[in-house]
Amino acid sequence: MAQQVKAVIARAKGAPVEVTTIVVPDPGPGEAVVRIQACGVCHTDLHYREGGINDEFPFLLGHEAAGVVESVGEGVTEVAPGDFVILNWRAVCGQCRACRRGRPQYCFDTHNARQKMTLLDGTELSPALGIGAFAEKTLVAAGQCTKVNPAAEPAVAGLLGCGVMAGIGAAINTGGVGRGDSVAVIGCGGVGGAAVLGSRLAGAARIIAVDIDDRKLETARTLGATHTVNSRTTDPVEAIRELTGGHGADVVVEAVGRPETYRQAFYARDLAGTVVLVGVPTPEMTLELPLLDVFGRGGALKSSWYGDCLPSRDFPMLIDLYLQGRLDLRAFVTETIELDAVEQAFARMHQGDVLRSVVVL
């Protein structure tokens, strides 16, 4: 039987979000209903509200979530009612050319729930990243549920569903950071901070955090940065080179998503070094680089989508490291809020006052 629950929606571009009642259908084949316990407020949700993703309003916002499976549809074997899960926005198909080659983290046919959640008047909702977790309950594809150790705090676990995983994965999965490497991270918000943390976890010897906000740089130090550079007052390329013996970093993670910071990343890497773009650009942005420099510096220019993660592999591993005290995921939770405080959380995010506000239900 369909359920009515409270949720946060964005009705129109730029309009304040609102708490309203939505209808969540029973799960169909391959689907699951999850009772949400916590959901982080991610910048992507603000992009949805501002129409920066698409114009398929109204949106059901929220996607960095953890909760408990309440019910499952026909044919679901991955999870069962009562399982504590982190939601992901990439349920792999298992059949595309990437999956068949043993690279499901690059699945080209990821999917979400087929049924739609609606407003009371029947208006269909577009769930953010196929999840929609600023809600008491949500409907997802069962493959979007990754079972993890229930000892983890929901407010912490849910952050792996997007930003924290993107940053850690950008460093470890995409960048291949290893023991003794030098790493520079440009942009130290939630994703960049996670890249710093991932680099420390991987054993990097030198981790250089770059930002224009001293508050974020100080947080980066607590997450593992060995050096910080305020690029508002210091040339970050020259500073990174100076801190790496004049060579540049082995891996540079660009967590801003702008042409000017990407150029900084490109010239701040060592010969044969790696640039990883994990910051999300806007559609009108373009990049111009001398092709001879691209050729002459060698190395790799990579883009990291969701940290090149495979949720079934990476989420349980990272939760185990957190429970062992080896991965300080709690450091990303700046505040916990209620469902009706999402709009205010967007304002604090825009001002740079928080790493993550987390809605706790």
Score class of each variant (00 low, 15 high):
2 A>Y: 06
3 Q>V: 12
5 V>T: 09
5 V>Q: 03
6 K>A: 11
7 A>C: 01
8 V>I: 10
10 A>R: 04
14 G>A: 00
14 G>Y: 02
34 V>T: 11
35 R>D: 14
39 C>P: 01
41 V>K: 12
44 T>L: 15
44 T>H: 01
49 R>N: 15
53 I>Q: 09
55 D>I: 05
55 D>T: 10
55 D>Q: 12
56 E>A: 12
57 F>V: 02
59 F>P: 09
65 A>T: 15
68 V>M: 03
69 V>S: 00
73 G>M: 11
74 E>P: 14
76 V>Y: 02
81 P>L: 11
81 P>M: 09
84 F>E: 13
85 V>A: 08
90 R>T: 08
91 A>W: 04
91 A>S: 09
93 C>Q: 02
93 C>D: 11
96 C>A: 04
96 C>W: 01
97 R>E: 08
102 G>V: 03
103 R>Q: 13
107 C>M: 01
107 C>Y: 00
109 D>M: 00
109 D>T: 05
112 N>A: 15
113 A>K: 07
117 M>P: 07
118 T>E: 14
127 P>D: 05
128 A>Y: 15
129 L>H: 12
129 L>A: 13
132 G>F: 05
137 K>D: 02
138 T>I: 05
138 T>Y: 01
140 V>Q: 05
143 G>L: 03
147 K>W: 07
150 P>Q: 05
151 A>M: 07
153 E>Y: 03
154 P>A: 14
157 A>D: 14
158 G>Q: 08
160 L>Q: 13
160 L>G: 07
164 V>F: 13
169 G>W: 03
182 S>P: 13
187 G>C: 00
191 V>A: 02
198 G>Q: 14
198 G>H: 10
200 R>E: 07
203 G>M: 03
207 I>M: 01
210 V>N: 08
211 D>I: 10
212 I>V: 09
214 D>W: 06
214 D>A: 04
215 R>P: 00
217 L>K: 09
219 T>F: 14
220 A>R: 06
223 L>T: 02
226 T>D: 06
227 H>Y: 13
227 H>E: 14
234 T>V: 15
235 D>W: 06
236 P>I: 01
237 V>E: 12
238 E>I: 06
239 A>E: 15
243 L>V: 15
247 H>F: 12
248 G>K: 10
248 G>V: 13
250 D>W: 12
252 V>F: 07
252 V>W: 14
255 A>R: 07
255 A>T: 03
261 T>V: 03
262 Y>T: 12
266 F>K: 08
266 F>N: 15
274 T>V: 15
276 V>L: 04
277 L>K: 15
280 V>K: 04
283 P>F: 04
284 E>P: 00
285 M>N: 12
285 M>S: 05
287 L>C: 03
289 L>K: 10
290 P>L: 07
291 L>R: 05
291 L>P: 09
296 G>K: 05
299 G>V: 02
301 L>D: 12
302 K>L: 13
304 S>I: 15
315 F>P: 08
318 L>E: 09
319 I>E: 02
320 D>T: 10
329 L>A: 02
329 L>N: 00
334 T>D: 03
338 E>C: 12
343 E>L: 04
343 E>K: 02
343 E>P: 09
343 E>G: 02
344 Q>R: 14
348 R>P: 14
349 M>D: 04
352 G>V: 11
353 D>N: 15
355 L>R: 15
357 S>T: 01
361 L>M: 07
